[in-house]
Design a binder for these strands. Structure first.
Length: 309
DNA sequence: AAGACGAAAGTGGTTGA
DNA sequence: TCAACAACTTTCGTCTT
């Protein structure tokens, strides 16, 4: 990461994510894109010999998926072509253009609407541009494969966004997405699974550590508490406490414990709220953490220190 | 009075026959 | 396709601070 940027100017967060591929620096706490359009480090294609280079080098502006036609666009024929055609050919030409028109307007109209919705939700959640692009790409693919049929456009948009967030390690919870998009949580989950499965997009299970930064900053916890929480998470992962559990619950519990150890106590309710889980889940994870990580000694020490008969 | 804790019953989703 | 199952939630009563 370039030396210049250490802190997020928006929220002061220190969890910056440098995405080399897109040339962006993103604040993981608030999602602000700090530096954009740096150098594009990636090559679009590899060239193995002279023959291939001709077709593979790119020229012109890179494509963008947030324009409904990817910034390119095709129309059948220009008027000038007409003069070259005879009567029969001319009819064929008109038929083709009509078809092209019908198909493309249906898809394009849908895409225009959907991308507008996508941008709205994305900006509301302060998602980085890279995620927005990715979700637009996913949505476009979904439309082309006819996966939207029978589902509301909004729910597919939400599903695409959710998937894109996961892939870029800036996870938002289904609850957050649900709030902004107005689609039910389970509906988003359903379309998310459906779309990713149909498109063959593989998504790693999200890492609890990815949530820590955001939760910690909305709870106004210190940086030490935060990094300690991540250490706790690592230990928990070694003890195989994390598999099969919801990542948000684990992240929340680790933060809760860490806050206790640093005298920055938050109530279970407070932590539960920002993590979008219940107190009970935090308690369960918390108990498991104490059992497995022998942290209970430290907690007890703390309590004895207070009592001091 | 508020927070922490735990038990019991209910929900939505996954898995394996 | 259905039943068993694990994770999580909701609700509620009790204990602690």
């Amino acid at each position: 990461m370039p030396e210049l940027v250490k802190k997020c100017p928006e929220c002061g967060g220190i969890n910056l994510n440098w995405n080399k591929e897109r040339g962006e620096i993103i604040c993981r706490d608030c999602g602000l894109v700090i530096e954009e359009k740096m150098v594009d480090f990636t090559q679009e294609w590899r060239e193995f010999d002279g023959d291939q280079s001709e077709g593979r080098r790119r020229a012109g502006a890179p494509m963008t998926y947030t324009q409904f036609d990817h910034g390119l666009g095709t129309e059948v024929g220009q008027k000038a072509d007409l003069f070259k055609l005879g009567g029969k050919e001319r009819n064929k030409f008109f038929r083709l253009r009509k078809w092209q028109y019908r198909i493309s307007t249906a898809i394009e109209r849908n895409l225009k609407l959907a991308l507008a919705e996508l941008k709205r939700v994305s900006s509301y959640l302060k998602l980085p541009k890279s995620v927005e692009e990715e979700s637009a790409r996913i949505y476009t693919l979904a439309v082309q494969r006819g996966l939207v049929r029978g589902r509301s456009m909004e729910s597919v948009v939400a599903g695409a966004l959710y998937a894109a967030c996961r892939r870029h390690d800036v996870p938002r919870t289904l609850d957050e997405l649900s709030d902004v998009s107005g689609i039910e949580k389970k509906e988003i989950g359903r379309t998310y699974r459906f779309v990713t499965r149909e498109l063959g997009i593989t998504i790693l299970p999200s890492n609890p550590a990815d949530y820590i930064a955001r939760f910690a900053s909305s709870l106004k916890l210190s940086a030490e508490t935060q990094s300690n929480a991540i250490e706790i998470l690592e230990q928990a992962q070694k003890a195989e406490l994390t598999s099969g559990r919801g990542p948000t619950g684990i992240a929340a519990a680790a933060l809760y414990v860490s806050a206790l150890l640093h005298n920055e106590k938050r109530t279970q309710r407070e932590v539960a709220d920002v993590a979008g889980v219940t107190e009970v889940t935090i308690r369960n994870r918390y108990k498991e953490l104490l059992d497995e990580l022998k942290l209970d000694k430290e907690i007890k020490k703390r309590k004895k220190g207070k009592k001091r008969k």
